[in-house]
């Protein structure tokens, strides 16, 4: 026992520099991720100011009821997951392709400028994007209908037709996140060992063969990390996006309502903190389970590449 304790201190002293570097991250994580977690108790309480977070009376599972009693729980959960799956696929695939193309096309200036231009939408707030979208899609004054009328076609009623919206939202999301993803994948491509490309050239591989056999396999670890991280959030709808694009347009809810907008709408009027916390807990627990399963699947396939 003493031996082991001695060994522990020995390790600490030996790795002091590394541990010191680790300290800020651990501290921040503890402060901002672990301590706030105790707030989960709010989900099981009927919150009032007199009692505060810990003194309010217990409410059991009452706070979860509104969500499941609404009859919409399944629909909004399904929408959230499907949209997120779409986002994960598109926002990995397309940036990856863009990064590969940019890398192959070369030309330092061209690459830099394209990269910056692609990155721009990332900085535009969803509120602004919502307004831009409105001037595109509005029935009477929108650009799209303006063009349709000009070429002699019937105008389309975008804001009253739910079926257009999954496509629109996927496109807008991809447009907005493209730059960020591209930079990430470009960084990953740049770090691929040059010698592999040289070897491929020696073997007479053409561009496509080189991409297929060298670049893409080397990007697997990055893809897996990104996908695993994204899967953890698969039950969290991007509120800023959905709310600003759709707002309170009831006609579109069937295809655009996600957990976050749904909960926001239901609880805006009542300020029931306990219920919003309950919704958050529901999302987090499901997200946690999903990420465990996904990680397990990756481990089965390839131990090296799993997150943990």
């Amino acid at each position: 026992m003493r031996e082991r304790k001695h060994q522990f201190w020995h390790d600490v002293v030996k790795n002091r520099t590394l541990l010191l570097m680790l300290a800020p991250a651990v501290l921040l994580f503890f402060l901002f991720s672990y301590i706030p977690m105790s707030g989960i108790v709010i989900a099981f309480k009927r919150f009032d100011y007199v009692g505060g977070v810990f003194g309010s009376p217990w409410a059991g599972l009452d706070n979860f009821k509104f969500f499941f009693e609404s009859g919409d729980a399944w629909r909004v959960t399904r929408n959230t997951v499907l949209y997120n799956l779409g986002f994960i696929v598109l926002s990995n695939l397309i940036p990856m392709l863009t990064a590969i193309l940019l890398f192959e096309v070369g030309g330092k200036w061209f690459r830099k400028i394209t990269q910056s231009l692609l990155f721009l939408p990332y900085f535009i707030s969803w509120v602004v994007v919502g307004s831009i979208a409105y001037s595109f899609f509005a029935f009477d004054v929108g650009t799209i209908n303006g063009i349709l009328k000009w070429v002699g076609m019937e105008p389309i009623d975008i804001y009253n037709t739910p079926s257009y919206w999954p496509v629109i939202l996927l496109l807008v999301h991809t447009w907005k996140s493209l730059g960020y993803g591209t930079v990430m994948y470009l960084a990953a491509i740049t770090s691929i060992d040059r010698e592999m490309y040289e070897a491929a050239d020696m073997d007479g591989a053409n561009v496509f063969q080189r991409i297929r056999s060298v670049t893409i396999p080397n990007l697997y670890p990055t893809v897996i990390i990104l996908v695993l991280l994204a899967i953890g959030n698969i039950f969290q709808g991007d509120f800023g996006m959905f709310y600003n694009m759709v707002g309170n347009n009831g006609l579109l809810f069937s295809s655009t309502d996600v957990i976050d907008t749904f909960v926001f709408r239901l609880l805006m009027g009542s300020n029931e903190i306990g219920m919003s916390a309950a919704a958050g807990v529901y999302q987090s627990v499901l997200g946690f389970i999903t990420i465990l399963l996904a990680n397990y699947a990756v481990r089965r396939y390839d131990k090296e590449r799993a997150l943990f």
Partner: peptide
């Protein structure tokens, strides 16, 4: 959106 409750001393 979710953690709206702060520490509230007894009012």
């Amino acid at each position: 959106g979710n953690n709206t409750g702060g520490n509230t001393p007894a009012a």
